[in-house]
Design a protein around this nucleic acid. Structure first.
Lengths: 129, 129
DNA sequence: CAGTATCCGAGGTGATACTG
DNA sequence: CAGTATCACCTCGGATACTG
């Protein structure tokens, strides 16, 4: 029943589904959201998105670039100087992320509690408390 | 590597980070978003979130329940009758998902194109169109 | 500074079979 | 109908080492 574009495509059941494919990946939303602030050099981005490795950062950045969300600008300098920024499409996506961010801020304590309760700190058996 | 508290505790760098932990999982955003429409029986939910397996659906539902996002109501009937609905917290989260859904709808063709280009359609062998 | 290359393990995910 | 249980894959992501 190929009724709509949503059906014809690899499985977009709705707009949300489509969006999720673009922001799929542990770090993408964080990257996109941080870039709202404007162009950012690789190093600064890496520091901003804490915990991300070079491999992951580059990988996700490349995918975002391929998807038309970010733009990589290489200044062709020595030492290397590169920065990343959002495309108009990326900016609109970032804006859509704002409510999510606000929700997290508003409910951060509740969320933190969920996780500490659910995982019970995974109490390591051998002498950790 | 010693698990630092910052690692163990949701060391949320921002609200978005917190939110992402709640909706982490391939199906959760779809589940939450679908439940905006109101309480939904297990079977109906499974049909709505297309492609999800029992195992995944139940698993994610349980996590969402533990996180206070959804409520499971068991009618104690035979045959079994269970439905799931959003808590107030869940409803607020679902609302935060709306812009994301709209973004996907607005840009669905662009997104579809990205993926078809990137993956070359993964082959859809016979009898479509 | 801004990457690239490779190895490796965890666990997320799916397929299948079974149950009250 | 609404799950539960088990197996197996396989991708995602982390650690490490190297480069222009």
């Amino acid at each position: 029943m190929t009724t709509s574009v949503a059906e014809a495509v690899p499985g977009f059941t709705c707009g949300l589904d489509a969006t999720l494919r673009v922001i799929a990946g542990k770090w993408k939303p964080l990257i996109i959201y941080f870039l709202i602030q404007g162009p950012c050099r690789y190093g600064a981005l890496k520091r901003a998105v804490r915990g991300v490795s070079d491999k992951m950062l580059i990988q996700q950045l490349k995918e975002l670039e391929a998807d038309g969300i970010v733009v990589r600008r290489d200044y062709q300098e020595v030492p290397p100087r590169v920065d990343y920024s959002l495309t108009p499409l990326g900016r609109s996506l970032a804006q859509a992320l704002v409510p999510l961010c606000n929700w997290g801020s508003d409910n951060m304590e509740a969320v933190a509690r969920m996780f500490s309760e659910r995982e019970q700190w995974q109490a390591s058996p051998t002498g950790d408390r």
